[in-house]
Design a protein around this nucleic acid. Sequence first.
DNA 1: TGAAAAACGGAACAACGCTCCGTATGTTGA
DNA 2: TCAACATACGGAGCGTTGTTCCGTTTTTCA
Lengths: 192, 192
Amino acid sequence: MEPKRRADVERNERALLDAAAKVFATSGVGATVREVAAAAGVGMGTLYRHFPTRADLMVAVYRHQIDACAEAGPALLAAAPTPFAALLDWIHLFVDFLATKHGVAKVWQGDAAGYTALHQLFLDRLVPVLSDLLHAATASGEVVADIKPYELIRAVGDLVAWTVQDPNYDVRRIVTLLITGLRQPQPERPAS
Amino acid sequence: MEPKRRADVERNERALLDAAAKVFATSGVGATVREVAAAAGVGMGTLYRHFPTRADLMVAVYRHQIDACAEAGPALLAAAPTPFAALLDWIHLFVDFLATKHGVAKVWQGDAAGYTALHQLFLDRLVPVLSDLLHAATASGEVVADIKPYELIRAVGDLVAWTVQDPNYDVRRIVTLLITGLRQPQPERPAS
DNA sequence: TGAAAAACGGAACAACGCTCCGTATGTTGA
DNA sequence: TCAACATACGGAGCGTTGTTCCGTTTTTCA
């Protein structure tokens, strides 16, 4: 099944992934492709042949961690005292993931050309997990607000995305506040 | 007191403001400075002498509307049945303002070089207003969560900032959810 | 009216993601 | 073992940003 790839492509791909992970961790996800290519000791052409777009590179780098987050969902649901607690725990796991990657913002936001791929991966992988958690918490009666998983994860993502170091702002508290709101019925929307 | 400005600077400044307002409304706030300069019929140099940075231009264009939003605060507080209702109304006013400007995102987010000025204007002008509303709603006992005005406006801004047309996502509902959460005490933060 | 002062226009710069193609290198059949 | 072919490589270069710089034009006022 394996189409027999040349030795150098294998080597370069690995070098690129390692370099990208290191560079993204150091200089933030906003690091330039040139920086990554240089760190890997390859040219731009090579980088782009392996990862046709900046986003593809990111996808490759973060795929593992996203998977881990997704897989933690069912585990938390089994372990936590109530489904709502599991939901809250999982959301915070997600927040931690996003928050530690300095500058995933531009990624989370799919609008800017080129970042869509990673955004999509986030959604494809995490929405189903959140969906289960949310339904469980609704079934248990803890969550009464009518909200779709997509809406919730997107909201949380938006909240965390642009977070930078700021002593006056603790995203986690805000996210908790949002989740807390799910336990209350929503008031009428005021006239705009 | 007026330092006696030349006639052409006055004329060009007006042309630039008008053009910018029109272009921002048409092509979104992300429109290029070149586009604005062209629309105003002036060169780049002129634009930059009047507005040393892209953000300064935006500040000039949106100042009125931000002021209007700020001034609506006390009025709503006086008119609404309860302080909490006023708070919710005002927040939605703010959301409407942000949401109608297609692409204020990059502006709200001060991190990207050049957009800081407008972000600062938002905060300087609106935080005090929100502060009053929030204190009133806390005093009336409706709001029990401990949250600072800056945290709240920033959260709402973050939620709205990247909003694009999306039938599956209604920001206003999410924001309402967040505000609703203010009426409940916050649970312990789960271990990260 | 004629300099001096002030403002103008737009070519040019740096940084970005991304493309292109001449060159080097790994693979394979004889 | 060794050509010759497919494949992959490197990095100069493109198009797009916001912004700067400076030779030229316009306005002002003695």
